[in-house]
Nucleic acid binder design. Structure first.
Length: 586
RNA sequence: GCACCCGUAGCUCAACUGGAUAGAGCGUCGGACUUCGAAUCCGAAGGUUGCAGGUUCGAGUCCUGCCGGGUGCGCCA
């Protein structure tokens, strides 16, 4: 039940009525129409800019048009008062029965409340994490992982058909380095003294079990072979082991992908998807042989001016055209990536969302250009860039050395503070702003710490329900069986505030989903939690406001209904964020 | 040099994608515990939204140019 779309419907009805009376032209378009809660409560419960949006098209002054629309609205149910304000806003105050309807709807629909069909089942591909399979996840990967997962949850809740996907970069030079590093550990496992790990190899201890695994499976058989013989074998084994490691790391945050897509699979097996993609572009004259200017900034040592195969990404807004084939004849990473995004489109994903780290922001334009070209404008491509996370310990920044083993792993962080604080804090900020993460703060039990504050609100709601059962045995059964009319006794301003906040939730979900901004859910939950804590505390000064009124079982049932509805929404939002909604805090 | 992101109260951040008098928390100051857990709440002070123009009924939000901070620039991945 979304009161804003209900009111929007009323407004559009009013416009249609005016059209049928020839007061408005038949072809006016309410482009840019908003129906929202005004910032200032003095402006009523719902405000619309409809008159300002249509004024020019109608050839009327905004306030005059607002007046005409307002007259139509006054006859509608549920709207108690309509006022024209400022340049032509239509402000509406709604009757209390609307808010009671919201509470009732929450109680009836529980975790289905605010589920939306704005997505209309449209297939959306959310690709996130996609870390090179060369080692465990470190803390820098955490944010994108949590963000992508929560965004996928949110889109799912809003009615999209979501697929969570991980792109495995298993085709580049870095997995060959992985294979050689694993081979060293294999020799080590067989008793060779390998000494220090030479530069250019992955030194981490996490490869030791991989070496042992290779030794167990192949014995000494790989020792006599040439590199070009053992490398593919070791590589495949090591990549599989690394992906297991990564999946285990993601498991600690309860993150699961439905699809793991191998880069290598694009060129191996029957069809060469990269070649097909390049051929597709060639047919549209978007690929040519040419030269590029040298890169700006410091010139790479091995840069050479040469003729190469280029994609005309400048046709689609990129700064320069991009190379597709390396001098050794193999495809560039970008060429594979083009084929990969084309593959997503051919699998039926018109909407593709990629979640990347800040260090890849320079890559957005060219992939956007590629998607435009490959889908002939049909694809809807959005990159969500997650900015850096800066780690602090009690206010002191944690320096991350590039030396071996000095990275803070994702697992370290989750082990120390737990999954819930990590997930919530990663989402309690816009994705494109840098985020500070303080180990001490996120486990603090205070209002300072939004994770705790929101979870506490949920726990408190359940604590109230438990306590009510002590005062009034079986009152929760009354609550189950009660009639919607019990809600009529919810008239206190704090109760109304809570009901109005609940009424915001469906619209918030839709807005956050369409904007791809899960952080809005986190901020909303903080506000809802605050409303509940406030009302709970008002009961200290004003005992008649307490949720549990030992002298009035009927009123208590009504208030418990509200508390329960709030708990449902807190749990709903926390579930989208992937954070637990505890029934008690310990 | 170029591209992208950020710049909002002393600090950390919101602001429903162009709406009305820019809001929270922390910190500061002043208050409230024989409670349904004070693990909290109430009140006050605090702003030329980095600067300068522009677009329109209306700009923190869009456009242009500066200033400051961050990230990146390749046939790497």
């Amino acid at each position: 039940m979304n009161i804003f779309s209900i009111i929007e419907g009323r407004i559009l009805d009013a416009v249609a009525a005016l059209q049928s009376q020839d007061v408005l032209p038949g072809d006016v378009e309410p482009k840019g129409l908003t129906v929202e809660a005004p910032r200032d409560a003095a402006h009523g419960d719902v405000a619309s800019n409809i008159a300002m949006v249509l004024a020019k098209q109608a050839g009327l002054k905004p306030r005059d048009l607002a007046d005409l629309i307002a007259k139509q609205l006054r006859s509608g149910d549920g709207i108690e008062a309509v006022e024209i304000a400022g340049p032509g806003f239509i402000n509406m105050s709604l009757g209390k029965e609307i808010w009671r309807d919201v509470v009732w709807a929450v109680l009836e629909q529980r975790d289905r409340f605010a589920r939306s069909n704005v997505g209309a089942g449209m297939a959306v591909n959310v690709e996130y994490v996609s870390v090179n399979p060369t080692g465990p996840l470190h803390v820098g990967h955490c944010r994108g992982a949590v963000f992508g997962d929560a965004l996928a949850n949110l889109l799912d809740f809003a009615g999209f058909g979501v697929t969570r996907e991980y792109y495995i970069n298993d085709a580049g030079a870095q997995v060959d380095v992985l294979a050689r590093s694993a081979y060293l550990r294999y020799r080590e496992a067989l008793g060779d003294d390998i000494g220090e790990i030479p530069p250019g190899y992955y030194p981490g201890d996490y490869l030791k079990p991989v070496g042992q695994g290779l030794a167990a499976e192949h014995g000494r058989a790989l020792l006599d072979k040439n590199e070009d013989e053992w490398l593919p074998v070791v590589r495949e084994f090591a990549i599989a082991a690394m992906m297991d490691l990564i999946r285990d790391d993601l498991e600690t945050l309860n993150i699961h992908h439905e699809v793991f897509f191998s880069e290598r699979s694009l060129i191996e097996g029957g069809v060469n998807a990269v070649a097909e993609t390049i051929a597709f572009l060639k047919r549209q004259d978007l690929v040519y042989e040419g030269r590029l200017p040298p890169p700006k900034g410091k010139l790479p040592d091995d840069w050479e001016d040469r003729e190469q195969t280029l994609f005309r990404s400048t046709n689609f807004g990129d700064d320069i055209d991009r190379a597709l084939i390396k001098s050794d004849g193999s495809y560039t990473y970008f060429a594979s990536d083009m084929a990969y995004h084309r593959d997503k489109f051919l699998r039926g994903f018109k909407t593709m969302i990629d979640v990347w780290g800040a260090d890849h922001s320079g890559y957005i334009k060219r992939v956007g250009a590629a998607v435009d070209a490959l889908t002939e404008g049909e694809g809807d491509f959005d990159v969500k860039v997650c900015q850096l996370v800066r780690l602090f310990r009690a206010g002191e920044p944690i320096r991350m050395s590039k030396r071996a083993g000095a990275f803070v792993t994702l697992r370290d962080v989750v082990d120390e503070v737990g999954s819930d604080p990590v997930r919530f804090m990663m989402l309690y900020r816009k994705n494109d702003a840098v985020l500070d993460f303080d180990f001490a703060k996120v486990t603090e039990q205070s209002r300072d710490n939004p994770v705790f504050y929101v979870q506490m609100a949920h726990a408190r709601a359940h604590s109230v329900l438990r306590n009510a059962e002590e005062v009034f045995p079986d009152i929760l059964e009354d609550l189950e069986k009660c009639d919607r009319s019990v809600l009529e006794s919810l008239v206190d301003k704090g109760e109304i505030t809570l009901m109005k906040r609940l009424a915001q939730y469906p619209r918030l979900i839709e807005g956050a989903a369409l904007a791809h901004e899960p952080h809005r859910v986190a901020f909303y939950l903080y506000e809802l939690a605050s409303d509940l804590h406030v009302q709970w505390n008002r009961g200290k000064d004003l005992p008649q406001l307490r949720f549990i009124r030992s002298d009035d079982r009927g009123l208590t049932v009504a208030r418990l209904a509200l508390v329960k509805a709030v708990a449902h929404i807190l749990a709903s939002g926390l579930t989208i964020l992937g954070v637990h909604a505890p029934h008690e805090m310990r």
